[in-house]
Design a protein around this nucleic acid. Structure first.
Lengths: 344, 344
DNA sequence: GGAACCCGTGTGACCGTACACATTCCCCGC
DNA sequence: GCGGGGAATGTGTACGGTCACACGGGTTCC
């Protein structure tokens, strides 16, 4: 009754209940519990109920690790992201998360900070070590493709990017067309000297928008000039604007995204130039704030959420062994507001 | 040599190499390989090298599921998020992801769409079923606390939110002080009739900012008026502005975040009112675009990344059994730009 | 009336790793 | 010369599930 032999209550390391505990409570074998968990068809309703009750009583939760171990299915989709604080990627990511969870998959996310090969590779490496079943790349950077090939990524993957590079792994918004529409809009307004501030060179999206811009210009037999390579930020747009506007040998600007357009407009205002009176500006993305800029921004809308959803859809299809899934590009849409006006 | 008995090449189900395969190649026991993986001290350098070589040769990767199963450590931190496409949460999340990965943890993220109890609960439920070791809540909504208590979340957790509610689980930016600084700035400029457009009522942050606003006003013996309850979006700020400005019985507005401030400024412009000439506007957050608004926005800066990093730091500390960790609030900072001017 | 079959359920093996313990080897000191 | 002890390595077992298969009992069919 006293000390010496009996230890003090033995904390007993509250082990989570397992499948056998449930079986014991329900008065069945553990296999039957397993059947309930995987909703096997042939179970007597009464047994089913008993097991369900036992599960509820114990607060039992299946151990994902054990399950993953034996089935060798992690039910995880890897996401390689970059700049996921930006509106576009963040929105896609959000949609991906939602769709994946609904389908019973979870996400393993890793962000790469720089775009160098090593960084990408170690990101992918990390994801593969999580034994993801599929891969989504929201880091639309050129080198990603090399890395994926080099690492022999043995799982289905999709990259959310800009151009159909002939790979069957990209899900893309037709940025080239989007950029052409933006540019054409400016041309239609009578502008002949048009600048382009693009995104970083190693972003496929930036490249595609630039291509669209250049092609539209050359189709209209207009003079093309070297685009400015930016970094997607409003600040860059601002400083680039201050620099460019010293010459004013153009009357319209197509910015690679809305943020840079905002910065550019800021620069115009500071230099006493009116948008769109003196300079017309078009952005890209249609972030929710764009319609409240001063002036409200003409821009190209992309459906980021749609892209995210389709990425999951595609991958799940592939995991189920379906083939010939649609990789049709999503079409962006020109939204005309008040930052563009006829050339005078 | 021919058919009949020998089957056609037998696809052989390319099983990933395991610890024993490595052991065989290296000519050691599997336990030795395990020691290498967990860098145990007592291994002969030569053996170490042999094992390392074998690992490289086979392209072996430790199976996380098996490891999690036996150690009963998932090395996963759960994140319950809401509105993670917004700048603030997205930035914190990004910092969290980075810090967590550096510490050898991965993230399991789930987003809740609505703020009702069921939704929060099922979100937490999902995370618990992933057997996360710790929990971060970036959904700063009041009901989260109830849910956490109800569910008996048995792991350390941190909520990224606004007020020190006396719980030892919140990591907070001192939003009250931030809001007071913003309000005081307007009062110092001579404004006496100040409006507040707040965030959604069930957001703790919105509540805290509102409190700060009201307290500062009453400390200055100024008339307080009922804040408008918004939804964080620029569009709300815009429509609220159109409505409010029909009366113009105020000369300054403190908006709950930068987006709503932007919308409000848009409304002012549309009604022919000058900011800051006629109306002064202060925002909250200091999103990267704020300095390029028209006019550049006076706002309160929060260090979202810092918050994210500290959340991980705190949780890891707790997991290591440390106590008395610092929950000191992060101080926000008033950034004065051009959207505010003396009352005339 | 027995073989064939289906339904509902139970038994054994196995997934890949870490931990506790056992074992071997070698060196040291008295 | 022998016991002691630490370093380096090997052996058994458990983690919590799922899968393949076995099994008993009832029905169907010829």
């Amino acid at each position: 009754m006293t000390t010496d032999t009996d230890r003090p209550a033995e904390p007993e390391r509250v082990r989570a209940p397992n499948i056998r505990d449930v079986a014991r409570v329900a008065g069945v074998s553990y296999q039957t519990v397993s059947r309930v968990l995987n909703d096997s068809p042939s179970i007597r309703p009464e047994t089913l109920q008993r097991v369900r009750d036992a599960i509820a009583e114990l607060g039992y939760r299946p151990n994902q690790a054990a399950r993953a171990l034996v089935t060798s299915r992690s039910r995880t989709i890897g996401v390689l992201g970059a700049q996921t604080v930006h509106y576009g990627p963040a929105t896609s990511l959000h949609a991906i998360e939602t769709s994946a969870r609904e389908a019973g998959y979870r996400l393993s996310i890793t962000n790469i900070s720089s775009s160098d090969y090593t960084s990408i590779k170690s990101g992918l490496d990390y994801l593969m070590s999580q034994s993801v079943e599929a891969l989504i790349v929201i880091a639309p950077q050129v080198r990603v493709f090399e890395a994926i090939n080099d690492l022999q990524v043995g799982v289905p993957y999709v990259t959310l990017e800009a151009t159909g590079l002939g790979t069957s792994h990209s899900l893309w918004v037709d940025q080239v067309t989007g950029a052409r529409r933006a540019t054409k809009h400016l041309i239609d307004l009578g502008h002949t000297e048009i600048m382009h501030i693009s995104g970083p060179q190693d972003w496929i999206e930036a490249e595609a928008r630039m291509q669209g811009f250049l092609r539209e210009l050359s189709d209209a037999d207009l003079r093309t000039r070297a685009p400015i390579l930016g970094d997607w930020t409003a600040s860059f747009g601002y400083y680039a604007g201050l620099e460019l506007l010293r010459f004013r040998d153009f009357s319209a600007v197509f910015a690679g995204n809305d943020q840079m357009a905002l910065g550019l407009i800021h620069a115009c205002r500071e230099l006493g130039l009116d948008v769109p009176g003196d300079i017309s500006v078009v952005g890209f993305d249609d972030i929710p704030e764009a319609s409240h800029f001063s002036p409200p921004l003409t821009t190209v809308r992309q459906n980021f959420a749609e892209i995210g959803r389709r990425a999951i859809e595609l991958l799940l299809g592939e995991l189920r062994g379906e083939t010939g899934l649609s990789h049709e590009p999503v079409q962006p849409e020109l939204v005309i507001r008040e930052s563009t006006a006829p050339h005078r």
